[in-house]
């Protein structure tokens, strides 16, 4: 590109690139230290007070977004013996970028869970706002003997608003095997049928809870129906998955919270 006129630069999609990182390690006194706790740009990380062996971290959005063109990455890792719990201070809103044809935003989450460690990844919901386009990828790698509790909630549009385009892929690996690899696309521009009777049928909130634990290797829970639109299913390995759709985010949370209390 040779176009370097100021006007052209102002119009060019100037997305934010930012990565936040947290690493948890045993502190040698029965607790967990955070040798890496590093935010960037719109992603800030804060350690919060907590009793018990786990370190608690909150992801604080220092700016709104992601907006079209942004590429945000969050990496959380536990070392053997560490216990980490990551939440977020508020819902994440996928927002449109500037201009008619703003490019898709990306949000990548990379979780690494070592043996004998625990990672709770419990962010607040992701809201796909009208006119936005976001591609989320979440990849969790759990070593043999590691514990992962992962919650993912997506709400399509703010109240009574049509959603933007939201594409998300969740991949959970345990040891050398892929336990779960799922993609969901919703909103304008998603493949036809996404809101039809096979996929969402008008529900505006969709979520899942994944629990990987060595205990499930010997004692996996049986598949169960948790309500009209929620089920628990054992994965092909030491993990379970709760899948739910609901009319809104509040009712979705209730289902996933009940499941979390029961199976973690």
């Amino acid at each position: 590109m040779t176009s370097s006129a100021p006007a052209a630069r102002a119009l060019a999609p100037a997305g934010v690139r930012a990565t936040a990182r947290v690493t948890a390690r045993p502190d040698g006194r029965g607790g967990t230290a955070l040798p890496v706790l590093q935010g960037e740009g719109p992603l800030a990380l804060r350690r919060t007070r907590a009793a018990g062996p786990a370190a608690h971290v909150l992801l604080v959005g220092a700016m709104s977004g992601p907006l079209g063109g942004d590429h945000l990455t969050v990496e959380a890792a536990t070392e053997p013996g560490a216990h980490l719990r990551v939440g977020s201070a508020a819902a994440t809103m996928a927002l449109p970028g500037q201009g008619e044809a703003s490019p898709e935003a990306r949000y990548d989450v990379r979780l690494t869970v070592a043996a004998d460690s625990t990672l709770h990844w419990l962010p607040e919901q992701l809201i796909s706002v009208r006119g936005s386009a976001l591609h989320v990828t979440t990849r969790a790698d759990v070593a043999e003997g590691g514990h992962l509790i992962l919650r993912e909630e997506q709400t399509l549009g703010r109240t009574a608003e049509p959603p933007g385009l939201l594409r998300s892929r969740l991949t959970v690996r345990h040891a050398d095997r892929v336990l779960l690899d799922q993609e969901l696309a919703c909103g304008p521009g998603a493949p036809a049928g996404w809101d039809g009777p096979a996929v969402l049928a008008g529900h505006r909130a969709v979520g899942q809870l994944v629990v990987v634990s060595p205990e499930f290797r010997t004692n996996p829970p049986a598949a169960a129906v948790l309500g009209e639109h929620a089920t628990l299913t054992p994965l092909a390995g030491p993990g379970i998955l709760v899948t739910a759709v609901a009319p809104d985010g509040l009712r979705l949370r209730r289902i996933l919270d009940e499941a979390r209390e029961r199976w973690t």
Binding site: R169, T171, V178, D181, Q182, E183, L184, A185, P191, P197, A198, V199, L200, A201, H203, V206, A223, V225, H229, A230, T231, T233, T243, A244, V245
Partner: peptide, 22 residues
């Protein structure tokens, strides 16, 4: 690798499939 293959999912089909089996 196999990650190149589509992974599109349909929540209600999965939920309905489990409920139906019961």
């Amino acid at each position: 690798g196999l990650h190149a293959l589509p992974a599109a999912s349909a929540p209600l089909l999965e939920i309905g499939g489990e409920a139906h089996a019961a």
